[in-house]
C-alpha cells in the first residue's frame, strides 16, 4: 500500500512538469492542422459549411448525400493520410518519450530522445505485433461469445498491451538498456512486482480518460465559438493523462524514484 501511494504521488509530481509534454502536443497540433486541408475545399458547400463548422455529424452525412461521388474520394484520401499521420505521431512518441523519461530520471531531454528513439521504435513494432495477437484472440472470443464479448476482450487486452509498453519504456530508461526485447522483459518484471498497484493505477488512468471524454461530450456541442479552445483542452488533457501513466510506470520501475 505504501509503495502504491508513493508511486501515485511520484507519478503526479512527474506529470506536473507539463512542459515535457509540449513537443508531443505540438507534433499532434501540426499533424492535425496539416490534415485540415479539406476545409479549403469546403468553401463551395454553401449553407452546409456553417453546419460543418458547428460539427454536427448530420452535416457530414448531408455532404455525402449531396454528392457522394465527389465527397467519397476526398473522405477516403483524408482517412488514408490520417493513418499516415498516426504513424508519424507514433514516431514522435517514440522520440519524445525517451526524452521525457530521461528528464525524470535526472538526465537531459534531447540526448534522451536520441538515445532511446530506435529502441522504442523497435518496441513499438513488437507492441504492434502483440496488439494484432490481442485482436485475433478477441475475434476468437467473439465467435463463441458474440460481438460484445469480442469488443470487451479486445479493449481489455489492448489496454494491457499498452500498459506493458509504458512499463517497458520506463524500465528501459531506468536500466539504461534501450534494447526492445530487454525492455519488454524488464517491463513485465516491473508489472509482476506490484500487479495490483499497477492495475489500479492503470484503471485510474482509464477513468481519467473517460472523464475527459465525458466532459467533452457534455460540453462540446454547446461550446459555440469556444469550441476550438475546448477541443485543444481535451487534446492536452488526454495527453497529460498519458504522461501521468508514464510517470506512474517510471515511479514503479526500480530505480525510477525522484
Amino acid at each position: 500500500m505504501r509503495s502504491f501511494l508513493q508511486a501515485l504521488r511520484d507519478g503526479l509530481l512527474r506529470a506536473a512538469q507539463l512542459r515535457l509534454a509540449l513537443p508531443l502536443y505540438l507534433a499532434a497540433l501540426l499533424l492535425g492542422l496539416l490534415q485540415a486541408w479539406p476545409a479549403a475545399l469546403a468553401g463551395g458547400t454553401g449553407p452546409l459549411l456553417d453546419d460543418l463548422a458547428a460539427g454536427t455529424n448530420d452535416a457530414l452525412a448531408m455532404l455525402f448525400i449531396a454528392d457522394a461521388g465527389a465527397v467519397t474520394p476526398v473522405a477516403l484520401l483524408w482517412s488514408l493520410l490520417t493513418l499516415g499521420a498516426a504513424l508519424a505521431y507514433a514516431a514522435a512518441y517514440n522520440l519524445f518519450s525517451g526524452g521525457i523519461l530521461s528528464a525524470w530520471a535526472g538526465g537531459a531531454f534531447w540526448p534522451g530522445c536520441r538515445r532511446y528513439f530506435w529502441g522504442f521504435t523497435g518496441l513499438g513494432a513488437l507492441l504492434l505485433m502483440l496488439a494484432v495477437l490481442a485482436i485475433s484472440a478477441a475475434i476468437l472470443v467473439g465467435m463463441v461469445g458474440g460481438l460484445t464479448a469480442a469488443t470487451l476482450t479486445a479493449l481489455g487486452l489492448l489496454q494491457l498491451v499498452g500498459l506493458w509498453g509504458e512499463y517497458a519504456r520506463a524500465a528501459a530508461v531506468a536500466s539504461g538498456r534501450p534494447s526492445p526485447l530487454a525492455a519488454l522483459g524488464a517491463g513485465a518484471r516491473s508489472i509482476m512486482r506490484q500487479p495490483l498497484g499497477v492495475l489500479a493505477l492503470a484503471g485510474l488512468g482509464l477513468l481519467l480518460h473517460a472523464a475527459i471524454a465525458a466532459a467533452y461530450g457534455a460540453l462540446g456541442g454547446r461550446a459555440g465559438w469556444a469550441a476550438p479552445i475546448l477541443q485543444q483542452a481535451a487534446v492536452l488533457g488526454w495527453l497529460w493523462v498519458k504522461l501521468l501513466r508514464l510517470g506512474w510506470a517510471a515511479a514503479y520501475t526500480r530505480g525510477g524514484n525522484l
Binding site: A28, L31, A36, A53, A85, Y89, Y93, Q231
Partner: peptide, 27 residues
C-alpha cells in the same frame, strides 16, 4: 467565409489529433 471555414478546419484538426493520439500513443 473565413470564420466557418476556420471552424471546420479546427474541427478536422481536432478529429485528426484524437485519432492519432489513440493510435500513435500506443507506440
Amino acid at each position: 467565409r473565413l470564420l466557418p471555414q476556420a471552424g471546420f478546419a479546427a474541427r478536422l484538426a481536432f478529429w485528426t489529433q484524437l485519432i492519432i493520439q489513440s493510435l500513435g500513443l500506443f507506440g
